[in-house]
Amino acid sequence: MEELELQEKKPNILLTLYQKSILIVVLLILWAVVPLYLHNIYVPPLGEVLQEFAKLASTGELFKHIGASLKIALIGLAISQALAIPLGVLIGWFKKIDTYLDPLLVVMRNTSILAILPLFVLFLGIGEVSKIAIIVWGCFFPTLINTIQGVKTVDQNLIRSAQSMGISTTGLFFKVVIPASSPYILAGFRLSASIALIVLVGAEMVGAFYGIGFMIFNAQHAYMIPRMYVGILTLAILGVLVNLLSTKLENSVLRWQETNTNAV
């Protein structure tokens, strides 16, 4: 019997932590110190920004914005994935569908989302619906493309093996094709999740009364510079959190993979 447990070298946690955080820490220190001597209204020191952050957090205003943004992002993301994954499986599996749809999809996904944003506003207004729609659009393609790729590259031996047991077509989809393409699908999802946040800010530029994007642009217009930075900082933190969560999800779903070393 082979020895399966490979003795892995335990990495020094403190060292890794240091290596990973040092650059960010240095930048934050620079941000805290340099503006004190710059006296530029556009570059407030970190301390001032954090003060503003605390103020907005304590009044609950910040969370109202975060809540409004996340709600739209999540709904848009959910709808887009619910559309992209089944469609991707169909396109990946049936060559005919691929042949007919592929050119259209190439055109659609290569058209800048910012260019069609006004179109969505025109038809759907400046309310939540158009924002959700634009997020659906933005998050749809990465997952779709990945799912198609995943389904197309499923190991034929696995399909044959399942077919040799007389499995039904539905069974084949759910028991073989989708799990076999799950690494691709999840990579698409991770990409989509971060795109949701990016597109969201664009959508909130166009017209909104709440949301992080709105908060940033509103603050900029009103020259409330520290407030603007709070918005940007919040978005950055949200982005990191989203990436962290989707990577966690990916790792736990894909723990059957040998090389499961997705960087955070």
């Binding site: 696995l158 040799s164 047991m165 007389g166 073989v176 076999a180 059957w256």
Partner: peptide, 20 residues
Amino acid sequence: GPSLDRGIIMQAYALFPWRT
């Protein structure tokens, strides 16, 4: 067509990697 009265074993094992 295929059926459960015949079991095939391939060179490439064809185990489902996501299953224990």
